[in-house]
Nucleic acid binder design. Sequence first.
DNA 1: TCGCATGGCTAACAGTCATTAGCTTCGCGC
DNA 2: GCGCGAAGCTAATGACTGTTAGCCATGCGA
Lengths: 226, 226
Amino acid sequence: MTPGPSREAPADSPAPTPIPISKARNRRTEILDAALEIFVRHGYLGTTMEAIGEAVGMRAPSLYKHVRSKQELLVELMSRSITEVHAALDAATGSTSAPVLRLRRAMEAHVRYHAEHCLDALLGANELSNLEPGPFLERILAERDRYEAAFVEVVECGVAAGVFTVEHPKTTARALLDMGSGVSVWFRRDGELSVDALVYHYSDLAVRLVGADDAGAGSTNPGRIT
Amino acid sequence: MTPGPSREAPADSPAPTPIPISKARNRRTEILDAALEIFVRHGYLGTTMEAIGEAVGMRAPSLYKHVRSKQELLVELMSRSITEVHAALDAATGSTSAPVLRLRRAMEAHVRYHAEHCLDALLGANELSNLEPGPFLERILAERDRYEAAFVEVVECGVAAGVFTVEHPKTTARALLDMGSGVSVWFRRDGELSVDALVYHYSDLAVRLVGADDAGAGSTNPGRIT
DNA sequence: TCGCATGGCTAACAGTCATTAGCTTCGCGC
DNA sequence: GCGCGAAGCTAATGACTGTTAGCCATGCGA
């Protein structure tokens, strides 16, 4: 009953408290994190509230003390996701105007996001169809279009500047986007390549893909981990 | 109440019969086709038997006269899908041994499949997690691995022959695969590029990606449609 | 010490859905 | 004409699940 110490194991018996640290304030975040992982593994429709509850140590109905609905979880996760990718890309492409460098920066941001936030990325890619129709869905679709357009623009600028040799800029941009997004499906932190090495490799590939030949400019090779 | 004639216009008016041609034997195929489309659009779990039934003009329980279960539909569709991609790739890479040409052929087959059978491809990519565990799932996973390995092998052979300049063959093969698979997500038959033009373009991109410089060899440009 | 907000639980509801049971009709071979 | 299988339908079942209602413990502020 002693207020403070009773919560987080006084001194002699450290374990048996169900909530070890005072992360009660972050309960909602904890739920969101759990939901993200389970949504990705089983899909939105394949995920039960009971499963999310189990992951955070409570029963399904208790989740509603922290969250309005299952759909709200999806909306919040997707919102967070799309905002983050976007910010990363804008920060990357805004910094320079030299075509090759801009392409490298864009690809780096794209791949880095898909490697470091692969769960968010996978959710964004797979669960769009489970967002209830409405203004939020429209917003997400618009932001997605804007993201793609930004990549197309990078390629087209390079072509216009005579630096890239590309027959179909839109399709080539799509190829770049797709090959970067694929990373989130198979990348493992404990794999052959570190995130940095991967990012560097992909920005090389991007430069090759658009037919610009100074493959080394603009980035420093972080080295192989293999 | 009159049994025969009341239902389907006797003999003088040939059309109004609900089942126009004798495709009754193909009812199962018809159901499979409908299921494929709806599975892709709404996801396996988001698809009801009622929806599939509606697409072929019957109520959900009637489907069970032609099909054992919903899961069987998925299994059969995925089986068909994986077999087809595989055959296409084997046919493509088996024909030659020159690295660049082999790469071109592999990429062509890969992209062509993902453009021409985009529904099958999307199903294979998205609904793996809805296959019930068992020997069939194992088979699919194994075939998938084999498919990826075939691509890796093409890249590695080119590197070994000194024709490709690639730092990380596995990762590069992944990039090639991912960028080709992405096609099935956005490709539209009525878009800017025809399938042939797309396939040619992607095989060019592939050659560039691996750092082989004879981008024109081995394929004839089918021309732009734009 | 008391009350109340917080956050948990169980029970119950309402809806959905795959699947089964059982009935009817149609068309074909005899 | 007749029987039968094919193929459809409606009704029912049984399981699951998102969500709500309502109850209880805890701990903090007054």
